[in-house]
């Protein structure tokens, strides 16, 4: 189960949902696994405003992962700024043959919105989408109920008396 999931999970017990202590659920005895996944920059940018940053920092620290920065990155932090208008002076000095060389892509290419993910984006992707809990428990900070995670699947079925 990807750590991003924890951003959208709370206790299944209805009376806990109104209590701030029920979010986030706290991983306990967790076994982690990193599963590589494709990075989608648009996805990361759009998901950014939805992240409960302080809570994710708590989870990362509870799991012994590298600390997340104190404040969430901005959308702009996630991509490497694309080169602005090309410097004409240097281009003109180039040997005309070099313009056709693959090292010098035509200027039109910069119109295509091909952004490069920054290290910040790569790190965020690693923590949220590639780091998975395979075994362990998720514990409600309000009622203390423990939900088991087995083979990467968290089970939120409640015993009859808690429904």
């Amino acid at each position: 189960m990807k750590l991003l999931t924890l951003n959208f999970l709370t206790c299944a017990i209805k009376t806990c949902k109104s209590s701030p202590a029920s979010f986030p659920l706290h991983p306990r005895d967790a076994e982690l696994e990193v599963v590589e996944a494709d990075l989608n920059l648009a996805f990361l940018k759009n998901i950014l405003p939805r992240l409960m940053w302080d809570e994710l920092r708590v989870i990362a620290s509870e799991l012994g992962l590298p600390a997340l920065p104190e404040t969430p990155p901005s959308k702009a932090d996630l991509s490497i700024p694309s080169p602005t208008a090309p410097a004409p002076a240097t281009t003109l000095q180039l040997d005309p043959e070099a313009i056709d060389a693959p090292e010098n892509p035509p200027v039109v290419e910069s119109d295509v919105e091909e952004e490069t993910p920054s290290q910040t984006a790569v790190d965020l992707h690693r923590i949220l989408l590639e780091t998975c809990i395979t075994e362990g428990k998720l514990v409600c900070g309000n009622c203390g109920h423990e939900y088991a995670v087995k083979e990467g699947v968290a089970n939120f079925l409640l015993p009859g008396h808690l429904v």
């Binding site: 209805k14 968290a154 089970n155 939120f156 409640l158």
Partner: peptide, 14 residues
Amino acid sequence: TAIVADNLSLPHPL
């Protein structure tokens, strides 16, 4: 992500 849950006791923030 897929989780096991009952649709009348979903473990999601409202």
